[in-house]
C-alpha cells in the first residue's frame, strides 16, 4: 500500500492505495466519484477524462484509466462532479450540451465535457475543425458528433462573451462534509429525487 493525497473537486482525500490501482477506480470506488465512467479497456474512448494538474500546477485533460492513482499523488483533480456550481448551476459546457442535445445515451458525456473544458482552456475560440481534433481522444457511438461540435462552439462563445467562467466551480460547503470514506452525501442529506427507484 502507498499513501497518497489528492485534492478532488476541491476536497482533500488521503488514502492508502495499491500501486496497481487505476485513478479511475480510485475515484469511483474509493471516493464515490461515479460521475467518471470507464468505457473501454484500450485507452481510446476518453469516457474517463478528468482534469489533473501537471507538475507546473496547470490542469490538463487526462484519461484516468491510463493514470495510476499513485501517479496522481499531490495533484488536483476535477471530475465532472466538480464542474457545476452551488444550487446545481451548470457549467457553460454542461448547459450547452443540454441545450444543443449533444448526447443520447450519455455514456461518453462526462469525458466529452471534461475534454471540451480542457480544450477551451487552451483555445477559447476554436474552429469546428479544431473542436473535432481537440476531441479526437473521445469516442461517441450515438450522436454522430454534430451536436457535440455545436455545443462546444456555443459554450465557447458564451464563455467569451463574458459573465461566465470556464473554470470549474469552487466546491460547495456540502462537498467538504461529503468527504466520507465512500464519498457521496451522508444518507440523510441525499435528495429524494437522487435515489434510484426500480422501474415497476
Amino acid at each position: 500500500m502507498t499513501r497518497i493525497s489528492l485534492r478532488v473537486d476541491g476536497v482533500r482525500y488521503d488514502d492508502d492505495v495499491e500501486p496497481r490501482t487505476l485513478l479511475v477506480h480510485h475515484l469511483r470506488e474509493q471516493l464515490g466519484k461515479v460521475g467518471t465512467v470507464v468505457g473501454c479497456d484500450t485507452s481510446n474512448c476518453g469516457a474517463c477524462t478528468v482534469l489533473m494538474s501537471g507538475p507546473d500546477g496547470k490542469p490538463v485533460g487526462v484519461k484516468s484509466c491510463t493514470v495510476l492513482a499513485v501517479q496522481a499523488d499531490g495533484r488536483d483533480i476535477t471530475t465532472i462532479e466538480g464542474l457545476s456550481g452551488p444550487d446545481n448551476t451548470l457549467h457553460p459546457v454542461q448547459r450547452s450540451f443540454h441545450e444543443r442535445h449533444a448526447l443520447q445515451c450519455g455514456y461518453c458525456t462526462p469525458g466529452m465535457i471534461m475534454a471540451a473544458v480542457d480544450l477551451l482552456s487552451e483555445n477559447p475560440d476554436p474552429t469546428d475543425t479544431e473542436i473535432r481534433e481537440g476531441l479526437e481522444g473521445n469516442l461517441c457511438r450515438c450522436t454522430g458528433y454534430q451536436n457535440i461540435v455545436r455545443a462546444v462552439r456555443d459554450a465557447a462563445s458564451a464563455i467569451r462573451s463574458g459573465g461566465e467562467s470556464a473554470e470549474p466551480a469552487p466546491p460547495t460547503p456540502e462537498a467538504v462534509d461529503a468527504a466520507t470514506p465512500d464519498g457521496g452525501l451522508p444518507p440523510d442529506r441525499v435528495p429524494e429525487e437522487a435515489v434510484p427507484h426500480p422501474v415497476p
Binding site: 485507452s43 476518453g46 477524462t49 501537471g54 490538463v60 485533460g61 487526462v62 484519461k63 491510463t66 493514470v67 475534454a115 480542457d118 480544450l119 481537440g134 479526437e136 481522444g137 473521445n138
Partner: peptide
Amino acid sequence: VADRQVRHR
C-alpha cells in the same frame, strides 16, 4: 501523436 489527453501524459 495520439490525442490531447495522451499528449498531456
